[in-house]
Nucleic acid binder design. Sequence first.
DNA 1: TTTTATTTTAAAAAGATCTTCAAAAAATGT
DNA 2: ACATTTTTTGAAGATCTTTTTAAAATAAAA
Lengths: 224, 224
Amino acid sequence: MVTILVIDDEEDIRELLCYNLKKEGYDVYSAENGEKGLASMLANKPDLIILDVMMPGMDGIEVCEAIRRTDGFQKTLICFLTARNEDYSQIAGLDAGADDYVAKPVKPKVLVSRINALLRRKGMISLESGHVKDLVINREKYVVEKNGAVIHLPRKEFELLALLASKPDYVFERDTILDKVWGSDIVVGDRTIDVHVRKLREKIGEHYIKTVKGIGYKFVEVQN
Amino acid sequence: MVTILVIDDEEDIRELLCYNLKKEGYDVYSAENGEKGLASMLANKPDLIILDVMMPGMDGIEVCEAIRRTDGFQKTLICFLTARNEDYSQIAGLDAGADDYVAKPVKPKVLVSRINALLRRKGMISLESGHVKDLVINREKYVVEKNGAVIHLPRKEFELLALLASKPDYVFERDTILDKVWGSDIVVGDRTIDVHVRKLREKIGEHYIKTVKGIGYKFVEVQN
DNA sequence: TTTTATTTTAAAAAGATCTTCAAAAAATGT
DNA sequence: ACATTTTTTGAAGATCTTTTTAAAATAAAA
């Protein structure tokens, strides 16, 4: 499990980043200033720290230096958020510690894919395709392979399958599914999930997804 | 993953280079003098070293010679940063070890593209897709060949194709495409990518680029 | 068994996202 | 400055995806 710490004084930004990173499956913590950030770092031991350069109090550079001085965090990944027209002379020491930069204003999608890329580059995650039974779920190609045959799935169906298959035999409640696949703020009717499950079963086969009546659905690894 | 080491005594330059090279996706380290640079080299085993010629203490030439004397780094790429009015008689022996030169003052874009070109030339990165299916994507000629026929493509179209073809079957999200082809700070409308895709399909054929609705596009190696 | 709640199914409606075209804007070449 | 090429935009239409609807099927509970 990859843990990420977001340090930014703007609450909106923090929330935006946390929301999107959590949705991506990361364990996310946040802090509103350098001091709290460093404390959170010691407590949660993040693998990656996202750090705003411009903050009141300790700025990003200082926090970065402090991180690098802390035993055990010399190699923790750091990604800076920099204003677009940042003056290079003002961001002295920037090269010392950062592993990547993302320019503000931050687009969630861009940030998430950059974070993914960085973590992959550093070997922190293997976005490798997961395989369950005879299915290979390949997120990078956005396809499912079954005995070599390639099955194309539309987005929602793919995400639904990926979710269920991420924990075989584990039941996902309908609320959880709605939350993870659709997002907590989207409101859809009650039958939407069912229909997607049906489409999935049509495409990949009937026996992979099992209904747990009154609860939700699960991807069956072992039949019973 | 390509690792680059920047050795320069001027902090501003180091930062500028680090910033831009990291943003390009390289793993970048830096040092402020020859001694520290050599230490960092041993620790991080860079594929390419960017070396300022004029530095207090060990100058670039000396560092270069030291690098070449070090076991395992005889073939490490070296790119010199030279002052514009450098007296070339003074930098004797420069040709002994360097693989490229960039004149100061350094423009980030120029440097990055020179570095890219150098690494490509030396086979460190395969930004060019070589040949996929019956297409040969030739970056040096900036041309695509299909069964011997030469297809000329304008820059954006070429870059787009090169990007997609660099990882056949992998889906590139629209944001990623925008980032890589247009640049993260350029803002273009939503339909721009589509139109370029259409032009590409017109020129190279319909079946190479597949739309993955809601996600992006991919270059299909294997039909399905 | 009968009732009740829940899920399946199929088809249609609504929605979102792409494709295409034409034309404007920007860049490049002569 | 003019012509040409390249890039970008906007709008209409096509296509694919998602959601809803409602009836039929199913499982669990009374």
